[in-house]
Design a protein around this nucleic acid. Structure first.
Lengths: 217, 217
DNA sequence: AATATCAAAAATTTTGAAATTTAGTTGTTT
DNA sequence: AAACAACTAAATTTCAAAATTTTTGATATT
């Protein structure tokens, strides 16, 4: 299978956030080159770029590993995500115009539609990326009017890392879970459209707090 | 001149944050390989790693550039730095123990000593990295008890990007500037040791606000 | 039993050149 | 003169092999 580096990048990223590569697993260019029909250097190149996102760990002279997961790191990532999203939404509510409101409504509509389907059909591999992409689009749109490229880009990377930390979690992604999620997303949307900064920040916290492992200060 | 990749990395980073490479300047592996006596691929490797820090821009199929600077981006970086440092110092004051206080005092002592020398001798290339390193150590120590590796690591990268945004600024790094800085660092230290979260956050903001170009919300 | 030494194997990094892509120039057509 | 195509030079990316470094596992030493 001969593919371009964009395909290799996307495929490796997908395998990283779906735990096809287990956390901490060694990623050897010499092994992977066979699967993708390219040279080890190309794999190395792609892995360096993935380490920028934070889903791959790189250490000089000792290669690459899939980012490790742990309750502590998951907690840390979640806390950081809350910090960025709360500041992002604060600024978005201050700066956002009608177009932002419309885009947010659209993103939420798409997301809640998919979540309703999941409640009906149960969660499976087909919905995994569909839902994850839609959820990212909603949260990204939420902060998209913050006026800070740096904040938004950092949030994007953290979101991917967050997914990677979640995926191996033994958690029931059943009907109840998605029913709760639907309600939380609705609460976030309502507060945002109401221009209620504090209410929206609280809703964001309430949406993410289940991923915190110790009490937060 | 034959050097290892660590030396190449450090040398390129130094040239990026001292504007030896001008903002937006193209960084061509084929050109740079001559200077460092290595192959183009090795330079490429190093530049990919520097793009993780955020001082180099990479775009597929069109290579590398030194990160651009602009009043807007400088403002953005500064605002993000304020967000991270204010949260970092809040958590550090909540979590920090006596050892943290001692390390912070030590870092401040070293920094203020260097700053006093600069006031006496005037700022020059010799002091540039000496001061920058000491200033980073102070600010990094300030947030070092925050308990979040992710926050601290992100702050480190942002600090380097901040330096890069500052360096080409037409600003008088004369006696008055450093006298002001000395006072600001002292104010930050005092508030931290007094365990005054709000006071310290305000001191951090007052220290960085000169780099903001528009009013902040 | 624990630690140190060493050679072999495996993995990472670097190289130099080939293949591909982009950017710039010239020339043609409308 | 503007738009478009063809060509060329330069730069980026990819490759396969060589060089370097780390890891492994067996043997020897404390």
């Amino acid at each position: 299978m001969r593919v371009g580096t964009t395909e290799i990048y996307d495929d490796l990223l997908r395998k990283l956030v779906t735990a096809t590569f287990k956390p901490g697993e060694k990623l050897k260019p010499t092994t992977l080159q066979g699967e993708y029909g390219c040279s080890a250097n190309t794999i190395r190149d792609v892995l360096l770029r993935l380490s920028k996102v934070g889903v791959v760990e790189f250490e000089m002279q000792r290669g690459f590993r899939a980012q490790n997961t742990s309750p502590e790191h998951r907690h840390d990532i979640t806390r950081f995500r809350i910090l960025l999203e709360q500041e992002g939404v604060r600024l978005s509510i201050l700066n956002g115009d009608l177009v932002w409101e419309a885009r947010l409504s659209a993103a939420h509509h798409k997301l809640s539609h998919i979540e309703s389907q999941i409640v009906r059909d149960n969660f499976n591999d087909f919905y995994a990326t569909l839902w994850s992409d839609a959820e990212f689009e909603f949260h990204d749109t939420l902060i998209s009017a913050c006026g800070s490229e740096v904040l938004r880009e950092t949030y994007g990377n953290i979101y991917v890392q967050f997914r990677q930390q979640m995926v191996n979690l033994e958690r029931d992604f059943g009907t109840d879970y998605f029913k709760a999620i639907i309600h939380e997303h609705q609460t976030i949307l309502d507060a945002a459209l109401r221009r209620d900064i504090e209410g929206c920040q609280t809703a964001v916290f309430d949406h993410l707090k289940r991923n915190l492992t110790v009490d937060i200060k």
